[in-house]
Design a protein around this nucleic acid. Sequence first.
DNA 1: TATTGTTATACTCTATAACTATA
DNA 2: TATAGTTATAGAGTATAACAATA
Lengths: 146, 146
Amino acid sequence: MSENAQETRIADALIQVTRLVERVFAEVGRHCELTPQQAQLLCLLTDGPIGMTDLSRLLNLEKSSLTGLVDRVERRGLVARHRDTCDRRAWHVALTEEGQRAGAETHDLVNARLEALAEDLPASDRDQVAAALVHLLAAHRRTTAD
Amino acid sequence: MSENAQETRIADALIQVTRLVERVFAEVGRHCELTPQQAQLLCLLTDGPIGMTDLSRLLNLEKSSLTGLVDRVERRGLVARHRDTCDRRAWHVALTEEGQRAGAETHDLVNARLEALAEDLPASDRDQVAAALVHLLAAHRRTTAD
DNA sequence: TATTGTTATACTCTATAACTATA
DNA sequence: TATAGTTATAGAGTATAACAATA
């Protein structure tokens, strides 16, 4: 019974954290003149080019939805599509020079905001949350890998 | 340096958790024939009626955006607007009888999915994550209260 | 005057279905 | 046949600005 209450608290906390992160992306995005979705896309691409199929999986988007999102950001000159050298059907999405700047700024601001929240925690807690969240994500991956 | 890496891991983990929760709402919503946003709204309302201003704060939405969201769900007969007895400008949004069913099902499914992830954690970790997340959220509230 | 909520408008976001090109 | 990505379409979601009604 008390165990159940514990679990409910986790679900609630996860949902609230989600709204917090969404808000951070919205606010940082607005500061950079990006929609939340565009901000997320640019953040992902700061690690390097990603193929459309991988992107749609990472962002939980149908391929056609991603096409539109990439179109709009490409129209603004922030990303470019490059043909895959091995598979002529596939494309990689990469940041342009201007996109690098916007992406880096967005990425840094988002991380700074999220890290600032964690900074408030005792160092031991910080490690534990990170580890536990990673554990949680791994649990999900195992579930969906079925 | 290693501390910084730790913090970065938290930010990344929070972002990935966010995408996971978004996905859960999308999948559960689809199962209930609701959009992710409608599913979230109905989940919130399972605790009882909420005023428009409070809802817009809880969902991070401009008032006008919320008006549209509530309109669409009201058109489907899942919620109804009721005048505030004290303030004639204000309205409360409440689930209809049909909305109760949809909201309860959505709420239960979402919580079950999220709790299932946590179940995989050792009980001690579970408590710690919940506590730490709550701490994180409190840190944010303190920040925005300025 | 300030607050609550709506309307009007113009986008962006998104999924579904049908399609093209390549593997 | 299967996969990578696009196009067409329709609707949902969202913010901004201007507004109405009430406090």
